[in-house]
Design a protein around this nucleic acid. Structure first.
Lengths: 358, 358
DNA sequence: CTGAAAGCGCTTACAG
DNA sequence: CTGAAAGCGCTTACAG
């Protein structure tokens, strides 16, 4: 019951390993009879590819790495799920790394810490300042995932943060809200962009400055949303009539704080968030949110990764040829494509203050 | 800027690759001067281990595979997070697979589908009937994770389902509830065990049979919890005075259904679940739940995996030696250890009907 | 404590 | 369309 290698299959079928390899990897030019014969041996012996060996030889591992800050945050869990599903469709296995939002860890990944183990890297950075990595474009396939962008030397796939935020705030304005809190500023690039969307919407609606409210937080978590809104409610200013949370986790925390203080939603305060995590359909009341299309994000990210890999290794995919003397024209500088993916506003009870127009 | 190999480092430092390998892998018997010299070359050249090559040679990949049904389910996301964290502490990288609860996929994993890529497998099976795989103990390190058990030929790490369920129901009984719905029966082994816990608690409290209520579901999701409770409320029987949900996702759905129907929690109906997912502290009202210790589960599972790997390869760890002629005494039958990990009841507002005893 | 060498299981030009 | 052979970057007995 020892390990079955290609050589064993070849002997069993009476062909060379080359032929077995061809059959296994789906190389088209194999005679049907040979293929059938080999397939029979494959099945009979229960052959299973050794991916390590293939990876060593071909320079391709069949893995991609996905690095997210926290897998336990619903948004990232749902994103990871979408990536794993999309990768599965392409026969790619996903290696999940949790960075804990540690910029040291994120930097290491940007510097290629995962390249020996993965053909490409999907990084959902949290803390990396936009100036970082400006020095060098990576010499391996890399796509930034989700909202955060690190300068623009890397391709990124995600929604347009400014537009998403503007959409949410415009919706609140349409409900008749004026005194709207922007909940979530925290010094991140993403936070700046969502603040900008808020600003644009408020400005376009000519809301007076006295009604522009900002509640800063450390992280975009339920805890922070709760704490920030508690503080707001305990202050002596007049109540806001709406809260725009920079993500749904913050909104969930905000809803809990409002509930605990007996503030009615949406009658007293309307609430909207971004991400449309699954939880948001079950809050009290159900949460209005801007929904990114995670499947589209995952698909595009993988496509971009493949494009980069293709560009890097030439047409026929010579993998890791010998001493790599002639590197072609060298890895072409990847055009930084910042793809904005579609999103839609999902209106639920938390912001429904006016009867829907018929 | 070609790839730096051990050979390059060896030349640069004026030693053999053997020595470089020794330094890199932390082999103790290297003279301090040599070590320092090699280290300098390592740093200077920016050497990075090729894990594929090491994996091929040593028979050990440095990966473990974690298979869960859905990464987007909070419980599994939090479990995965705990596993990744624990693995990181041991220098192990985690490969995450999503089975979608497909028994075909789960069976394939049980048959070794991931062994060529991972040193061990952590499987959180959902649908596998207990009879499956009874045929053969696996010939690779495998630990079943979480609540589901597939017979007892595999080691399993998780809470005692019967005890956890009993604890939750006993708590509801203590609150004065009598007419308690068991929400979640679905034909799974886990479901049977939690039903048994319910039965034990109800029976011990001598609750009359007319008050034993069961609400079956397909999956343990928010959707199903919502639908089942809607149906319950629309029926013509008297209302229950408590709902024991087999997990928190079901409880979240139940809370939403009760909220939508204007039923007050906990005054009219008390609610308790199992899992204590992060979301549960933010529901309306906050949810009482039985909390497993995911960090303990992850740690124990990894330890068990290592024990199995050790048993399999002999003391000095000869990896994959030659033709493996002498397989020792063969892989010893792994004693099926069903480790019950600790849990605690977290009481929140959803079940607090009586003033706490002082 | 260190070197020279074999070999892990694959893929892939090179011939035929 | 198929074979024989080299080699990917490591680890590890075997010598010394």
């Amino acid at each position: 019951m020892a390990r079955v290698r290609m050589r064993d299959v070849a002997e069993h079928a009476g062909v060379s390993v080359r032929t077995v390899s061809n059959v296994v990897s789906g190389y088209p030019h194999v005679s049907p009879e040979t293929r059938a014969k080999v397939q029979r041996s494959l099945d009979e012996l229960g052959y299973r590819m050794d991916y390590m060996a293939r990876g060593l030889r071909s320079g391709r591992t069949g893995f991609i790495a996905l690095a997210v800050p926290f897998l336990a945050e619903p948004y990232f869990a749902e994103l990871a799920q979408a990536v794993i599903r999309a990768a599965g469709r392409r026969g790619i296995t996903v290696l999940v790394e949790a960075t804990a939002g540690d910029s040291e860890v994120e930097r290491r990944i940007l510097e290629g810490g995962l390249t020996n183990v993965a053909d490409g890297v999907l990084l959902s950075a949290l803390t990396l300042p936009a100036t970082d990595g400006a020095a060098a474009a990576p010499d391996f396939p890399l796509v930034m995932l989700g909202e955060h962008s690190v300068g623009d030397q890397f391709p990124r796939v995600g929604i347009d943060n400014v537009a998403a935020a503007r959409t949410a705030v415009e919706h609140l304005l349409e409900q008749g809200c004026r005194r709207i809190v922007a909940l979530g500023r925290n010094g991140s690039e993403n936070g700046r962009q969502r603040t900008e969307g808020y600003r644009q919407a408020m400005s376009a609606a000519r809301v007076r400055r006295v009604n522009w409210l900002v509640a800063p937080v450390d992280d975009w978590t339920r805890e922070q949303g709760y704490a920030a809104v508690r503080e707001l409610l305990e202050g002596d200013g007049p109540l806001p009539d709406a809260i725009f949370a920079f993500n749904d986790a913050l909104a969930v925390g905000a809803l809990r704080a409002l509930d605990a203080s007996g503030v009615r939603v949406p009658e007293d305060v309307a609430v909207a968030g971004i991400d449309d995590i699954q939880e948001s359909a079950y809050t009290h009341p159900p949460l209005t949110s801007v929904a990114p299309d995670l499947d589209v994000i995952a698909e595009r990210a993988l496509t971009l990764l493949e494009e980069q890999a293709g560009r890097r290794s030439g047409a026929q995919g010579a993998g890791r040829p010998g001493t790599e003397g002639a590197e072609g024209a060298g890895p072409e500088p990847v055009t930084a494509r910042q793809e904005a993916t579609p999103f839609r506003l999902v209106v639920r009870e938390s912001s429904r203050r006016r009867p829907p127009a018929r």
